[in-house]
Design a protein around this nucleic acid. Structure first.
Lengths: 188, 188
DNA sequence: GTCTATACCGTGATAGAC
DNA sequence: GTCTATCACGGTATAGAC
């Protein structure tokens, strides 16, 4: 194999990484439409056409940049699930993975991001519904999920003043009884 | 004054109305970026340049199309506010004003829509905070507001399957105790 | 095999023709 | 008062330079 300063494959891998990093940051901040291939290329210090060469089109670049790590599902009881959800706040507050942010940023205006969001949320609803009793378990699970969605949107994307700088423990403390009202047919 | 089939001013008013209606529908469905002036003009059956002539630029067209009717504020107690919020579900479910939908659709990716959303939500938070006790009234009010925001996003914009076709009364029934956990320092 | 230059089309916007 | 160039910019495809 030819021995330059870096092996060709390694060099390519690094360039791809820079492009994906730049794309992730821009998609998260500006959304799909306002993020230009040219801007991504500029941020990654490569030629715009190279981005096309690597990823084919903007859609595929987006897909690879936001690739969200699938939620590891474990069998938990209702209270455990509430704690799990409250735990995700911690992430949502501090630094939710940039890929997830990018996906959420575009989910209302980009069809594929919307589909991806529906899938992720649907999985969470499934998981919650399995662990809570009642005929309306899915509806309750959906409401719990939209509550967390609203929090993420309000805090991370809209950056509402009232939520800025609030320690996650305080949110968790207030939201714990709130979510618990939805985990069972009775408050119990 | 010249007497054609319609007075010039009236004719203009109708054309403007058609354009605004078409714009509202398209902005609500596709968001700001994906809505093209040309498509709005096509839907309103006018020349694209006429849209520019009337509104100057796309931004101003958006501003006038989504102009959201300010929430009439009345002094209510905490429980009354919960019922008020639950009442807004009814609207959010059936047919939330298209202008509000358009604004929400773009709030994550369009700076001005984001500012508008922050303003509307901020007003609701103010209003709620006035009516609930406790040092953390604003935080509680913000959480209540993001809960409703999440519901609107999940139902109206993402159109989650689990919420489609669910009668508003059922949502209200489930969410009433949920919201009540946030209206006071104690569940009481 | 990698990267660069360039051209094409649709969009927002402006200026001017009818 | 309407519509027709025309421009700049962005996504994308292609050809070709190294």
């Amino acid at each position: 194999m030819s021995e330059k300063l870096l092996p060709r494959a390694e060099r390519r891998r690094r360039t791809e990484g820079r492009i994906l990093g730049a794309a992730r940051a821009l998609f998260a901040e500006m959304g799909f439409e306002r993020t230009t291939i040219r801007a991504v290329a500029r941020a990654a210090e490569v030629d715009p056409a190279l981005v096309m060469q690597y990823f084919g089109n903007k859609q595929e670049l987006f897909r690879q940049a936001v690739r969200v790590t699938p939620v590891p599902d474990a069998g938990l009881d209702a209270d455990g699930l509430v704690e799990y959800l409250l735990g995700t706040i911690t992430m949502k507050m501090g630094e939710l993975p940039q890929g997830s942010l990018a996906m959420m940023r575009s989910m209302l205006t980009h069809p594929e991001a919307a589909a991806s969001a529906r899938e992720v949320l649907g999985r969470q609803i499934d998981r919650l519904a399995e662990s809570i009793p009642g005929d309306d378990a899915r509806l309750r699970a959906a409401l719990m999920t939209t509550i967390m969605l609203g929090l993420a949107v309000g805090h991370q994307l809209l950056e509402l003043d009232e939520l800025r700088g609030v320690p996650q423990e305080e949110i968790a403390r207030l939201l714990r009884p709130t979510l618990r009202t939805l985990t069972g047919p009775e408050v119990s």
